[in-house]
Design a protein around this nucleic acid. Structure first.
Lengths: 336, 336
DNA sequence: ATGAAAGCGCTAACAA
DNA sequence: TTGTTAGCGCTTTCAT
């Protein structure tokens, strides 16, 4: 039982031609019930499963969408992915997921591989928003949807979160509580999300006439370690900030660990707001105030856009959805 | 620029035969440098990417392994996946990931799809250890490696964690601190991990002559909600347990939330040990004692086994790795 | 209602 | 060193 039966084998066993078998496999009708039964039986008996490769060669479609994320270990992406998968399944599409570890080289490899495999479309949170390495997808006529990070100079449908607004609200919240020295731990500023969050930060300070101070801006990389290190830096400042804003979940975790290690008391000596709601948020004592993104919706919407694009190609104009994050006020910020 | 060039187009542009192009694509050598350059140039010019479908039809291999997990939202799996991906990349393999949401029906769909696509092997944490729905893979001669959950009646390489031992140590730890009424929140008992953890629990009680009491056994489903509900049940018991063991990370989160809502004070009124180290573990006050699994290693090992199996097929005997988890003693357990 | 046959893009055996 | 050619397994058109 160690060989893959093909359509020929089925045809022979059922005593029909391969064309008839194909009709049955694809539910095209026009086959006598009795014949169909015979074929179905043969398929079952042989354990026949049709080859996607052969099918793709003829049909030029795979009913597959490729998803590329920068960091599968960041819980944000699995949740977005869950949203994508669910919608995809509903439409009869299959998803394949790969993670780049924020490496553009790996991203290029993955893109190439996806093309080789003939994915019908790609949903991507790119590691590098300079889009040159993604042009190749466009050249092949493969639709792309950008999620969470937009793509420069490439005319693609986009689903992002209003990072600027989310951060603005967070910083505003801190300012209204009397904070003036507010630290921000940024992500890689060549990504829109990280950049926009910094913009939101600056804008809020400006609107409330608080001077921008470079020393309160920490340049992180969205990884836990940089949140940790950045927070220690802030702690060691002569004029410590009275509040910290962390630009993503992983860095929040690092930051919070640093707070503990420094014995810098959260919610008392220092207020804290993190971007993204995380498991720990409601366990901490005090509970964490966060900017929460609609992760599942992000994924669902992304697939929906992609699906429309696959179905109608150019006939739809480019669309950009900007979802609003929500400031969840809990207990980690106190009057200053 | 909207058509996919094929090997023919390249051959024509470079003024050679398709065979020569094929040789270049596959680095088979035996092509004059000058010819090769001409071909490479043509490939670049046309943006040619070879069709995996066509290639697969000839070669019967895809250099792809499929990974099936039951719940992509459980952070355990992305980390295992990261281990798999890394090793796979090293060996020139590509991974595709799908999540079943613990549904056997979806799992079957995914398996079928993987076969259609001709994956060279499958790494799976199955939603249902009764293996009938996986036999089809074996029939097609596709190697399987089971990760974290073994598969009944199917002779496959397996990488698991010593769940019994890990739990035993946890319960022993509690007992030695004087606990006698110990609650356990189980996962679905038709999965080995959940089952073995219960066994470890029972064994520890037995070894220390503590009577087993059914009322302290909560039947959960590895989801947060069941941890929450189960904990509330334990709380409402006339004879409350003095310690709780939770069988997985998600349920731990639910359980901890319930503790808070019940105002049942962790580390004081009730001790707690969770299976799997989670982000929140070291933030909680007190910090959580946990049984930690070597997640990344689990993934790396799984791919390694699969790769050997792909390369040598039957010539290798079936192997089973049982990795030891580690009891990380922190602060959530107190003398009783 | 069914079958014969062309051809998708590639690899590899054989020829030159 | 290069070219010719036979399939791989399927879908689809055209006959029957």
């Amino acid at each position: 039982m160690e060989s893959k039966p093909n359509i020929q084998a089925v045809a022979k066993l059922a005593n029909v031609s391969i064309a008839t078998v194909s009709r049955v496999i694809n539910n095209q009708g026009g086959v006598r019930k009795k014949t169909e039964d015979r074929i179905l039986k043969a398929i079952d008996e042989l354990g026949y499963i049709r080859s996607a490769a052969a099918r793709t060669m003829k049909k030029k479609e795979t009913k597959t969408v490729g998803v590329i994320v920068p960091d599968i270990k960041n819980p944000f992406f699995p949740i977005v992915m869950a949203g994508i998968e669910q919608k995809a399944r509903e439409k009869g599409y299959f998803t394949i997921l790969s993670s780049t570890s924020e490496s553009q080289a790996i991203e290029e490899e993955i893109v190439k591989n996806f093309i080789e495999r003939g994915v019908d479309g790609v949903i991507i949170t790119t590691a590098n928003e300079d889009s040159d390495h993604l042009k190749v997808l466009q050249n092949q006529g493969i639709p792309i949807v950008a999620v969470d990070r937009s793509i420069q100079n490439l005319n693609v449908d986009t689903v992002i979160v209003d990072n600027e607004k989310g951060t603005y609200q967070a910083i505003q919240h801190l300012i209204l509580q009397g904070h003036k020295r507010i630290g921000i731990i940024c992500g890689p500023l060549n990504t829109t999300p990280a950049f926009k969050r910094l913009i939101g930060y600056k804008k809020a300070l400006e609107d409330y006439n608080i001077p921008f101070n470079e020393q309160y801006v920490i340049h992180g990389d969205f990884q836990e370690q940089s949140g940790y290190k950045g927070t220690k830096e802030l702690y060691s400042l002569d004029e410590q900030p009275t509040a910290i804003f962390s630009s993503n979940n992983l860095m929040s975790i690092g930051s919070l660990k640093a707070l503990q290690d420094c014995n810098w008391i959260l919610g008392k000596e220092v207020s804290f707001i993190g971007f993204d709601d995380i498991d720990i948020a409601t366990f901490m004592n005090p509970k964490l105030t966060v900017v929460a993104r609609p992760m599942n919706t992000l994924g669902e919407l992304a697939f929906q856009l992609l699906h429309e694009r696959i179905s109608f190609k150019e006939s739809v104009p480019r669309r950009e959805y900007m979802l609003s994050p929500e400031l969840k006020i809990r207990e980690s910020c106190r009057l200053n």
